[in-house]
């Protein structure tokens, strides 16, 4: 089942005087249960692709379909609704709210859904249990280690039971041992909870565990086959 599909997506933005072609016609499909890893150097456009696939941004050209809906047709409110219900995000810098404790941070995405807070509270506690932070759910982010903070962020990404979780360099700010634990946690969630993960990173090691592997270079997405051969995947725009 295809969750998110992109068709010839381009993204052009202006950075001062220069025009940046961040994406040059990317077509891709994310299927339910995928564990996708996209590698690529800094500035290759992999974060931009993740933002567009995650309904945070709209493509300049081309189309993104989430559950068959064209996101270019949706307004800000509807996009927020899609992000809230269908998509979870994990960031390199965790992006937790420093004044709230772990559990409250996990519950942040449910805030708009007034009146159902109590049901979510139990779910939040269970999720923190799942990521191994049951004992520390009333601690503030400043009292948690980097790995623990990222676990909180993972629990936050899962609170609304999304179909797909996007992670942008989830291990980038962690030491390798802690990073491995976080990746293992995501793998387990993929296997046991059937969550779909899309991870963008420049850590090539993660390719080993991916069910689908891609490389991003200069705004073009290529598939990596079993023999680690790179196959051009990006369709050039034809005019």
């Amino acid at each position: 089942m295809t969750l998110i599909e992109s068709k010839k997506v381009t993204k052009v933005y202006k950075l001062g005087m220069t025009t940046v072609h961040a994406l040059r016609g990317v077509s891709s499909q994310i299927e339910k249960g995928d564990f996708i890893v996209i590698v690529g150097p800094s500035g290759s456009g992999k974060s931009t692709l993740m933002h567009i696939l995650g309904a945070l941004d709209k493509p300049s050209e081309g189309e993104v379909l989430i559950d068959g809906k064209k996101i270019s047709k949706l307004d800000e409110w509807e996009l927020a609704m899609i992000r809230r219900k269908k998509i979870g995000f994990i960031f390199q810098t965790f992006n937790l709210i420093p004044t709230l404790n772990a559990l409250e941070n996990v519950l942040i995405p449910t805030e708009p859904l007034d009146g159902e807070q109590e049901d979510y509270r139990e779910r939040g506690e269970n999720l923190l249990d799942l990521v191994g932070l049951k004992e520390r759910m009333h601690h503030k982010p400043s009292e948690l280690s980097g790995g623990e903070r990222q676990r909180v962020a993972i629990a936050r990404a899962l609170i609304n039971d999304p179909e797909i979780v996007f992670a942008d360099e989830p291990t980038g700010n962690l030491d390798s041992l802690t990073g491995d634990k976080i990746i293992n946690l995501m793998l387990n969630l993929n296997k046991e909870e059937k969550k779909t993960f899309v991870i963008v990173t420049h850590n090539q090691d993660l390719l080993k565990i991916a069910s689908k592997k891609f490389i991003m270079k200069d705004g073009e997405l290529s598939k990596i086959d079993r023999n680690h051969r790179v196959r051009k995947f990006t369709e050039k725009r034809t005019k």
Binding site: G54, L56, E76, W77, A80, M81, R83, R84, K85, I87, G88, F89, F91, T93, N95, I97, I108, P109, E111, P112, R156, A157, N160
Partner: peptide
């Protein structure tokens, strides 16, 4: 950045 991540997790403008 924090406001950006609130939007990313589904908060709308309101």
């Amino acid at each position: 950045k924090e406001i950006g991540s609130l939007k990313a997790v589904g908060w709308n403008n309101t």
